[in-house]
Amino acid sequence: MRVHNDPMTRVPAARIEASGLTKHYSGVAAVDDVSFTVEPGSVTGFLGPNGAGKTTTLRMLLGLVRADRGRATIGGVEYRDLPAPLEVVGAALESTGFHPSRTGLDHLLIYTKAAALPASRATAAIEEVGLGEARNRRVGAYSLGMRQRLALATALLGDPAVLILDEPANGLDPAGVVWLRSFLRKYAATGRSVLVSSHVLTEMQQLVDRVVILHRGRVVRQATLTELADSHGDLETAFFELTTNQEIRS
């Protein structure tokens, strides 16, 4: 995994682009005309209250949910058309679904075999996320924070140009949160794109370069932290002002 051993290594850029994404469930718009970009070399926070449409949008980006309208591309290509998706996009939308009887390393080895990746990727990934000493421990004995790290290791297997993570700090202790922040900042510094969904606004304030804020299925603001500071003071203030108003801002 070239990025982790050499933080100055550059990789092919891959921009995330969502254009007019719309998804209805039972006639109700869960996501309504959502458009945004995540530029290479940046960490973008994807924020919104529960039910704002964040998870549905992320799943559309990854081809797990078909949009009613609109298009999502990564490096100009829809996820389903990527010839080697794990080498372009690494995603961790949840820290569940691990077989409790498998070891952490075995879990990763299964993925490398399925994706025709070298087994050395599994070893490198589990070391990079700090689970080296627990590699031969069964996942059923992992804490929530350890499972979060294993989910991140799975996302890293293909050494991707893009990371899409949903609540990656959930279950991490304070030292783990600081580690994750440093890791993602360094990852983006190599020219990669990082999209992170989280409810922890204080952590997002320290991690991200810019934010996309959703409310009731629509984008109500996308801006850099500097731009938010100029208009609202800080991220927390901006978030509550933008998501507690009754009228959706276009």
Rank of each mutant, 00 (worst) to 15 (best):
L228P: 01
F239K: 01
T55I: 10
I74E: 01
E133Y: 04
R249F: 03
D33R: 15
L228I: 13
S197T: 01
P83E: 14
A238V: 03
R59Q: 15
R149W: 09
L109C: 05
S193I: 12
T154I: 02
S197P: 07
R181Y: 11
Y142L: 09
Y111L: 15
Y25D: 07
S101W: 14
L58Y: 11
A114M: 15
R218S: 12
L105E: 02
T22K: 00
L105S: 07
L131I: 06
V177R: 06
M146H: 08
R80S: 15
E203Y: 11
V208R: 00
G171V: 06
I248E: 06
A14C: 14
L214Y: 03
P174H: 06
Y142Q: 07
G51L: 12
A52K: 10
S143C: 08
A124Y: 06
E39H: 05
S143P: 06
V196S: 03
A238Y: 04
T44N: 11
P100G: 11
G90K: 05
Y187M: 05
A134H: 11
R59K: 15
G171L: 02
E94C: 02
G140S: 10
D81I: 01
V129G: 00
D209Y: 02
S35I: 04
R192N: 13
R147Q: 10
A92T: 04
L61H: 07
A125P: 07
D6H: 14
D166G: 03
A115T: 06
S120H: 08
F46M: 14
A134R: 13
L21V: 07
A14L: 07
A84H: 14
R71E: 15
F98K: 12
H24L: 15
H232G: 01
L150E: 03
P40Y: 06
T73I: 09
V43C: 03
N136M: 07
G191T: 05
G51P: 08
R80N: 11
E203G: 08
G70L: 04
F239L: 02
Y111I: 12
L163V: 03
G233K: 05
L62G: 15
A14R: 09
A229Y: 01
S250R: 09
V11E: 04
V38Y: 12
R149Q: 09
A124G: 05
K186E: 15
P100N: 08
L228Y: 01
E128P: 03
Y79L: 08
V88N: 06
P168Q: 06
E78F: 06
L86R: 13
E128R: 13
T190L: 00
P100V: 05
L61G: 01
A161Q: 15
A114G: 14
R66P: 02
L201Q: 07
P168S: 13
I213N: 00
L47G: 11
L105T: 01
G27P: 08
G45P: 11
L184H: 03
D68F: 14
L58P: 00
I16L: 14
T9F: 12
T56H: 12
